[in-house]
Design a protein around this nucleic acid. Sequence first.
RNA 1: GGAGGUGUGGCCGAGCGGCUGAAGGCGACGGUCUUGAAAACCGUUAGGCGGGUAACCGUCUCGGGGGUUCGAAUCCCUCCACCUCCGCCA
Length: 444
Amino acid sequence: MLDIKLIRENPDIIKLAARDKKVTCDVDNLIEVDARRRKVQQEVEALRTQSREGGQQIALYRNPKGDWYKRAVENGKSPDEIKAEADRIQQELNDVKARIKPLEEEDRTVQEEFDALMLTIPQPPAPEVPVGVDDTENVELRRVGEIPTFDFDAKDHVTLGRDLDIIDIERGVKLAGSRNYILKGVGSLLHQAVLRLAQDMMVKRGFVPMTVPVLVNESVMTGTGYFPVGREQAYLCERDEMALVGTAEVPLTAYHNGEILSEDQLPLKYCAQSTCFRREAGAAGKDTAGLYRIHLFDKVEQVIICRNDEEASIAFHREILQNAEDVVQALELPYRVVNVCTGDLGQGQVQKYDIETWMPSRDSYGETHSASRFYEFQARRLMLRYKDANKKTRYCHTLNNTVIASPRILIPVLEIHQNADGTITIPAALRPYINNQERIQPRA
RNA sequence: GGAGGUGUGGCCGAGCGGCUGAAGGCGACGGUCUUGAAAACCGUUAGGCGGGUAACCGUCUCGGGGGUUCGAAUCCCUCCACCUCCGCCA
């Protein structure tokens, strides 16, 4: 969410952002509704003032023990006169009340309309974000690590998983439908290992590990910007008005919602492993093979809540990107970093860097990490604030990035570290988490 | 799930339907005092929305929503959260 004043004063910036981000919103309508909302509010408030002041009069007139009443009697007013006056005011107030009622109704309606429109307004992207239609126009910033060439017939992760008996997609689908899978044996251990490695690295860097709800109420989804735009991507538990999160970013960022922090608490750095649920609506037929695009996975996520300062936000953005790069490097995987273009940016994101890791079976880099900064966008929706040095209440800035998402990351781990004999060399960083096992051997 | 109870400002805690956005205490912050600190004393200390360059003003908010009333923290309904007992249970 943005400041309505900013929208009023710079409608063209918002319209441009909406166009570049391919977000649908009606800025002109919002501005018109806003004008109506303020007008109605002022009318209601004027009537309420009248009503309150009249009520206070009545209180005086109806209290024979009060100073005002005693003085009035001393000045020659009879109790009957006073009572008549009170009755007259009360009658007047009945009229005022009758006028307030429909205005209050209108006030409520127009406010709801305003709120709904506000939730559709996109955050303008940073100037350094390339303008583009979709992910094909993301701009590569750098490549790290060497793309391997195999002097044998390399297998994809699905084949490797089957041959080594560590991934069972068929039975996963049998239990839960398409885009489901089962990790088995060392496959399951490897999954746990990458998650634990990632978490340990983050804790060493001062991030507070958290265990958080993955089934949350809708206000939390709205607050983090996943609702109402994008609602169709979430699994809903409608009977209980709850939603399953697609990322631990949601509970971590919303952790302090509605709070006013003190500046010396900032920055707050949190990480959490959680299961992530995604409907992948609209992705029918896309990336159907293997573990790339699946309905359920586990992820360690990092979140930073910091001061309202663009410089600070940008610096932390670099930091969380580096954290993720270090994890990919620890897994000995080649990757590249891309500057995500406007068309591939979410509604609330100011800028996003994706890490794409080399996946031999795709013969390309595939997205494994996504580092975003939001400025106030989420904080405004969440009422996530702090008192600055001048005791002024300000909205925090928020950022987040993947640390590791598995099993997607197992695609390159398995494919890149495979050997001619069908075994897989486990990266050294993971071995401590798998009883120091060095290789995955085919089943006997 | 059943029965009962509770829900007031950062925390604790008052609050006959009008003068209560709310006594009092604690905490925090500022000041006086002190060589410095403590103590003591004085003062400040909620958020939303709207108006205004600003000082400031209006309005709403006493768990959320609705109702009764000229007027609600106070009465009624409902939802939510927490506590106690019973039931079920990883």
